[in-house]
Design a protein around this nucleic acid. Structure first.
Lengths: 372, 372
DNA sequence: TCGCTTTCGATCGTTTCCGATCGTTTCGTT
DNA sequence: AACGAAACGATCGGAAACGATCGAAAGCGA
């Protein structure tokens, strides 16, 4: 017929699925006079908003709970005796080993087996790894996918449509997909950053800097946590350095750390939160080389307590509960496996803890000019 | 008939097996008009999901499992032999009985005992009840305190400083106390409201009203959920009534409901989300008295599926998982009791589910044409 | 009018679904 | 226990649907 606006097409699609219950995509093409790819686009848009459900070859109404309050039909046969659980972690070098061990422990405790595939912060590779695991025959999945960009949204959409239960680890569905009904276990890194800021504040610091490493998916949360804590404690922002540094060991590394130390001291900032142990240790090393006293001249809190205890001086560190998080995610998956239908979506948030060591100095020297 | 979508076939198969109890595969071939191998594939897929049970030559209903198939799980570490768990609920008439029962079953399953004290949405009384329970010797507490106002903040601060573990139920610390390190189990009422709005939208409504009851602590969350859903679905706001009504049965009740109905019909709004079953049932009654057809003239979704099934017509309702929530809170408390120090703060969020009944007029008779 | 963004459509390679065939297994009857 | 009929599982090929990419057309602001 003639050109229609997107909103009109959506309305017609909804009307059709409403009256027929299920509609074939080809029928929509005839009905709307638009091309198949356009109809597909419309349909995915509606599905993202939770108004229809995509099936191969067409769409149906969203399926909700049965009107008849029948007894828990739940158990699909008792939970398998030896469940095979798959896991896709974006890295096995940094942060994730502890999470993986936690999941491993929990799965083993339930008499099952965990099969791991490593990915590399890339949506396409994440998907390939998941496919491998499905071929391998896993009954449920723990995934920490890349959620950024269009590919990330696409991946989440795909994960949400799998037939095996999926639990997101340290990830939440992006805001474009508000109704993606996946269980998730995450750490509240913003709270963690807040813990560090508050600790430094109780030690008497008022000007507290922040150093994050580029390309970490948690940096954003840490930055917002730092910001809200600083503002809710009514600490000053202006002049306080907030810096990104390149990866530890890269060519520009030393220069970047020097810059951090210089900017802090120049801005009368004697306390910093540094994201990631490696980077914090690097700051410690460089400070020692240059004769900057830690914690005397500069108090340092590390975010992410991997090797912080072994530094010199030992680093006070925010400790995400990675082992517990992994175990929790595995428990969520196993529980969902035992009751895939009636069980509502679970979203669990763990707080990090703060481990106080020596890099902040226990005592606060009496501040001059302590006002208001 | 001719070609059907996979989802349609699955639906028909489920319907057939539900009405007949057991179906021969050949009957399904005739019913669906598909080849035997296709039917077999469908049946296999359904059996994998646990929806039917395969037998030679056909399928049967899955045998219903025992009501509480949950095994002991997730609680790590030795818990006290017979823990005494205290609980303070703000009401024992509305919403809370199911939560209390859930906590009761979980505590009993762990070999402990639950001691309940009822309060009444008042911070001072909440505190008195907690004190009574502490005198009674409880080892851990489930509390749903009043969090509003200065008294609420004060109460939360006090709860956070108690020596026994405290788990908040359906409450979070107020934003003034962002670091109050209490475990909590809450329902995401905003998501629940979104579910209702989306359901009405798929049924074709674009102007969707909202009726909340005053003085309910959940009303705010429901209102924001309604708002975000309406805006993310690009539904209209202007002219759509958003109303507060006095408690059901109060003197102004009838007048308020009349006003709701009048405003809706005057604004061309034929769908409303009503917070709380009682109020929704009141709307239904008044509509019937006045000759307003439900769902013909006005589709109603109730928030909070207590008695919604028994109304006339039965109400489609958003169902917070109260029983599970209570059980979850109790498990959190027991786990904290077993490991009071290292265990990080746990915040668990449950999504409600939507139970579709008749008050919205699903209206679509899905495909006749098969024998009964 | 130009340039930018958004929206829609055509094409192509890939995936998924469906049906036919064939050999094997299971059930009921003798 | 033996037999035949029905049901089952595996494999293959064709057809439809899907996703990705690119390009054209329309809307919008300067």
């Amino acid at each position: 017929m003639n050109q229609k606006l997107a909103a009109q097409r959506h309305e017609l699609i909804l009307r059709a699925v409403r009256t027929h219950g299920t509609v074939r995509l080809q029928e929509l093409v005839d009905l709307l006079g638009a091309s198949a790819v356009t109809v597909r686009r419309d349909v995915t848009a509606l599905a993202d908003r939770g108004l229809v459900v995509r099936v191969h070859g067409g769409i149906t109404m969203p399926k909700h709970a049965e009107p008849f309050p029948r007894g828990p039909q739940s158990v699909v046969g008792p939970a398998p005796a030896h469940p095979l659980v798959g896991m896709v972690a974006p890295s096995v070098e940094y942060y994730w080993p502890a999470v993986i061990q936690g999941a491993q422990t929990a799965v083993a405790a339930a008499g099952g087996r965990l099969v791991l595939r490593a990915s590399s912060y890339d949506a396409a590779e994440d998907r390939r790894r998941v496919c491998e695991l499905l071929d391998r025959g896993v009954q449920t999945l723990l995934v920490a996918p890349s959620t950024s960009g269009r590919a990330g949204v696409e991946l989440l959409r795909w994960l949400g449509a799998l037939t095996v239960p999926v639990v997101l680890v340290e990830r939440l569905p992006p805001p474009e997909l508000p109704t993606t009904a996946l269980d998730a276990a995450v750490t509240d890194h913003a709270i963690g950053a807040g813990l560090a800021v508050r600790h430094l504040a109780t030690l008497g610091h008022r000007r507290i800097g922040l150093v994050t490493s580029r390309q970490s998916p948690h940096s954003d949360a840490i930055r917002t946590g730092w910001t809200t804590a600083v503002s809710s404690l009514e600490l000053p922002f202006n002049g306080v350095p907030v810096l990104d540094v390149p990866p530890y060991g890269s060519p520009q590394w030393t220069r970047a750390v020097d810059e951090v130390i210089d900017e802090c001291l120049a801005a009368d900032v004697h306390a910093v939160l540094v994201h990631a142990d490696r980077e914090a240790i690097g700051v410690l090393e460089r400070a020692r080389d240059r004769g900057v006293q830690v914690p005397g001249d500069l108090a340092v809190v590390s975010y992410d307590d991997e090797v912080a205890a072994a530094s010199d001086p030992p680093l006070t560190a925010v400790r995400p509960q990675k082992h517990r998080l992994g175990a929790l995610a595995a428990q969520l998956a196993l529980a969902r496996l035992a009751d895939p239908l009636d069980r509502p979506v679970h979203r669990v948030v763990l707080w990090p803890t703060l481990t106080v060591r020596e890099s902040c100095g226990t005592a606060l020297e009496p501040q001059k000019g302590w006002t208001s």
